[in-house]
Amino acid sequence: MTVRRMEAAARAAVPGLRVQAGGAVLTQRAMDASIERDLRRAELLAAPLLFPVLVFAYGSVVSALLVDAPEARPSMPAPATAGKDNG
């Protein structure tokens, strides 16, 4: 039985009763939804404000757009391990 069905059954059993589910799982779900909504809002506000700064810093619109593109990053060789064979 889902939480919503349990709430509905409790309300039907006692008319006028205020029923609200709680607990760690429901609290975590509510917090996750709130955090996701807040992060989305922050990203939507920060992007237009940050773009002119990136254009100024990198000198062109194309460079500012490529700053976080994975394809724009040079591939780094694997680091050499010193003293690999100590035998």
Rank of each mutant, 00 (worst) to 15 (best):
R41Y: 04
L66K: 08
G23K: 01
P52S: 00
I35M: 07
M76I: 13
R4S: 09
E7V: 02
E43H: 14
G59N: 01
R18S: 09
V14R: 01
R41V: 04
G59R: 00
R37A: 10
A46K: 05
A33V: 09
V61A: 15
L45T: 11
V55R: 05
A64H: 00
A46F: 05
P77Q: 04
L39T: 08
S34G: 09
L26I: 14
P77T: 05
A46N: 03
G16W: 01
P79C: 02
V55Q: 04
A69S: 10
V14N: 02
A24H: 14
P15I: 00
V25F: 13
L17M: 04
V61T: 10
G23C: 02
P74F: 03
L45I: 08
L66H: 13
A47I: 02
V3P: 05
E43N: 12
I35D: 10
L17D: 03
M6C: 07
R18T: 13
V3M: 06
L17H: 03
V19L: 00
V67M: 15
R40P: 02
G23Q: 02
A42P: 03
L66A: 13
V14T: 03
E7R: 01
L65M: 08
A46T: 04
V62K: 15
L17A: 05
A72W: 03
E36T: 10
G22K: 10
D32P: 08
A30N: 13
G87A: 11
M31H: 14
A57M: 05
R40Y: 04
L65F: 08
I35L: 06
P74Y: 03
E36V: 14
S34I: 09
G16C: 00
M31V: 12
G87V: 11
L49P: 06
M1G: 05
R11P: 01
T27W: 11
R5G: 11
A9E: 08
L17S: 02
L26N: 14
T2C: 10
D85F: 11
A82Y: 05
A13W: 01
L50K: 13
A9M: 07
A13M: 03
A46G: 04
M31L: 13
A47Q: 03
F51C: 08
T81H: 11
S60A: 01
P52H: 01
A69K: 12
A42C: 04
L54D: 05
L49F: 11
S34T: 15
G87E: 08
L44E: 09
A21G: 03
A33W: 10
A72F: 02
A64Q: 00
